[in-house]
């Protein structure tokens, strides 16, 4: 097993240990650190985390796979998450999704061949008042229109 936290994450891990009654609480924060470090969560990293937290790799996998934001496979550099829940749907999320699919030539749930873009349909982003909402990686695009999406995608390297 070669995987380990980089220096910054190791320090963060040590700091967090002091902030919880038991180290079990560190699963989610650690999975986040792994995902930030690699872009996704590989098996090796889950084994490593199991050792750090005295849990079996299976426990870690079971937890990681429960949460939809953890990627257990590599995904595109830009994850375009289109909200499909009711308030967004009433305000045209379907058109936004189709526009992005047409532009990139892939369907929701797929990645472009160069792994630059992934389209994901997600549930309510807590942005219903500024629907339709799209989230590219970690940035919310509110009251989104096809033109806004185009402008943003044009600017992504």
């Amino acid at each position: 097993m070669n995987w380990k936290f980089n220096e910054k994450n190791e320090k963060k891990f040590q700091d967090l240990l002091k902030r919880y009654p038991k180290k079990d609480s560190l699963t989610l924060p650690s999975l986040w650190m792994i995902q930030y470090q690699d872009g996704w969560i590989c098996e090796d990293a889950m084994r490593y985390l199991g050792q750090r937290l005295d849990m079996s790799p299976m426990d870690i996998y079971s937890i990681a796979s429960f949460y939809s934001m953890f990627h257990l496979e590599p995904i595109g550099k830009y994850n375009i998450q289109v909200c499909k829940t009711l308030s967004c749907k009433l305000r045209g999320s379907e058109d936004i999704k189709k526009h992005i699919e047409n532009r990139l030539g892939i369907k929701a749930g797929e990645s472009t061949e160069d792994m630059k873009f992934t389209i994901t349909e997600v549930e309510c982003l807590g942005s219903c008042g500024t629907a339709p909402c799209v989230c590219i990686n970690e940035n919310y695009i509110q009251n989104s229109t096809p033109k806004m999406i185009d402008d943003i995608l044009d600017g992504l390297k």
Partner: peptide, 12 residues
């Protein structure tokens, strides 16, 4: 008083 922010990961 300590305050710790803890992030979820996508589960309603």
């Amino acid at each position: 008083l300590e305050i710790t922010l803890h992030r979820g990961a996508g589960a309603y």
